[in-house]
Each structure stands twice: as structure tokens, then as C-alpha cells.
Amino acid sequence: MDVFIEISKGVLEQGFIYAIMALGVYISYHVLDFPDLSVDGTFPLGAAITAMLILGGVNPWLACLLAFIVGALAGLVTGLLHVKLKIRDLLSGILTMTALWSVNLSIAKTSLLSTYGAKTIFDSGIIMLLPESLASWRTLILVLILALFMKFLLDWYLTTKSGMLLRAVGDNPQLVTSLAKNPGYVKILGLAIGNGFAAFSGAILCQQQKFFDVNMGTGMIVMGLASVIIGMTVFKKLSIIKYTTMVVLGSILYKGAISLALNLGFNPNYLKLIMAVLFTLALVSNNFLDKKEGRGKVHGHVAIEEY
């Protein structure tokens, strides 16, 4: 029983941390209809920056905020490549992702950097107000709050004028043009926000696992997309819950499925294969459900119901 609780706790912790990245992918992939691969670079970018900052004694919360901002700047680059230089969406993301590999290495100055001993959001500040009896739950409680905070922040943003324009641009760029706004700028803004989320998520993971690894971004886009699509496929019947909630739940389900597979004795070498199979299953069942329900409109592979 203890083992089960420990495993569940691990799954939830990881699920909530990666959920923030998945929310970023939700913005680019679902809201903007832009397959943004920059996430593979901005996630470790957030971690690299955080590692350097907290090792230098900077407040770990401030480090998270700065990671968000720098991640957003990287997203801005992807957007500029696409909008200003007219490079295709997929390629723009690949370019940024590739460039960020070197950027991340030059920030951290090494491919693996331990932050052991540095103050993190998990062992200093507000979280220490929790009673000692809950000490082992600190991480989970904090990442739960953070994931929910980011989810509600995004929910709120998408109902503002700016957020509504963002939803419109993914749906119908011509409408944005008709509203006398440059759809290109709105896309750039969306990519900046999406990558800000990814870097923020990387910043939290770095503090939780106490190290930066230049490889930690590999496969992030797959994980993010899988979370988005699994969440939306599994919970699409529950129209009362918002898409952002589905994404958070999708991230947890995804981490749960991976953990289950590993605990059932699958060779960890097959991890990426399992990831790909899970992703495929989610995609196929999503398309299958669409057909069964006779839904005509498929937009970026996910039928639109809500933003």
C-alpha cells in the first residue's frame, strides 16, 4: 500500500509539473493551430536559467518568473521566424529548438548541472509554513497549487479581449484581419505565452529534481501533445469541464500510463516507444470518436467545442 501511495504521489507530482508545459502546448497547438516544436528547447531553457539563478542565490520564485519571461522571448523568436521571415510553422519551431540547444549549454556551461544545496521553492519561503507532519507532501501540494494557478490564469486570459483575439486567430485569421489587427502579431504573442509556460514548467522541474540536464527537453512536444490529446479524448464527453482542465488531467493520465507500464516490468529502453504508442492510441481513438459522432469539423486534429 505504501508503495502504491509513493508511486501515485510521484505520478501526480510529475503530472502537475508537466501539465504546465502541456498548457503551453495547448495554446500553440490547439488555440493557435500552430505545431510549435520550440517547446523541446524552451523547457530546458527555463531549467538552465533557473539552475544558474538559484545557484547564484537569486530568490527561487524570481527565478521561475525570469524563466517564464526568457521562454516567452524564445517563443517570440519562433513567431518572428514564421511571421516576418515567412518560414513554415514546423520549421520555425525546429530552428528555435535547434538554436536553443547551444543557448542552453552556454547558459549552464555544462550538459549536466546539479543545483544541490541551492534554495528552491520546495524548501524555502511560503511552503515551509505547512506543518511538519505534511513535510513529505510539500512538493505535491506546491505543484498542485502551481498547476491550478497557471490553469486559472490561462482561463482568465482567454476570456480577456487579448485572449479572445488569440482564440480568433487560430480559428480564423481573416476575422482578426477584419478586426483591423495584424494576425501575425497575435500569433507571435500566443507563441510567446505558450513557450513562457513551457519554460516555467522547466524551471519548476529543475528545482524539484535539483539538476539541469541539457537533454531534459527531448520529447517534450510529444509529451505535451499527448497530454493535450489524451485529456481531450478521455474527457470530451464531460462538456462541463474546460479544455484547460482536460489538459491538466491528460498530463496526469499520461504520466500514470508511463509509470504503470514501467511498473509492469517494461524495459525502460522502451520508454519512448511506449510514449509513441500511447500517443498514437490517443490520436486514433480521437479520430475514431469524431467519426462515430459524425463530427465534420476537425481542426488541428482536435474537434472544436470550446476554446
Binding site: D171, N172, Q174, L175, H299, I304, E305
Partner: peptide
């Protein structure tokens, strides 16, 4: 008719 409105809103 799809060009003048945002269908998911």
C-alpha cells in the same frame, strides 16, 4: 460564410 466569424466562439 466561415470567413467572417470565429466558429469555436
Amino acid at each position: 460564410p466561415g470567413k467572417g466569424t470565429s466558429p469555436s466562439m
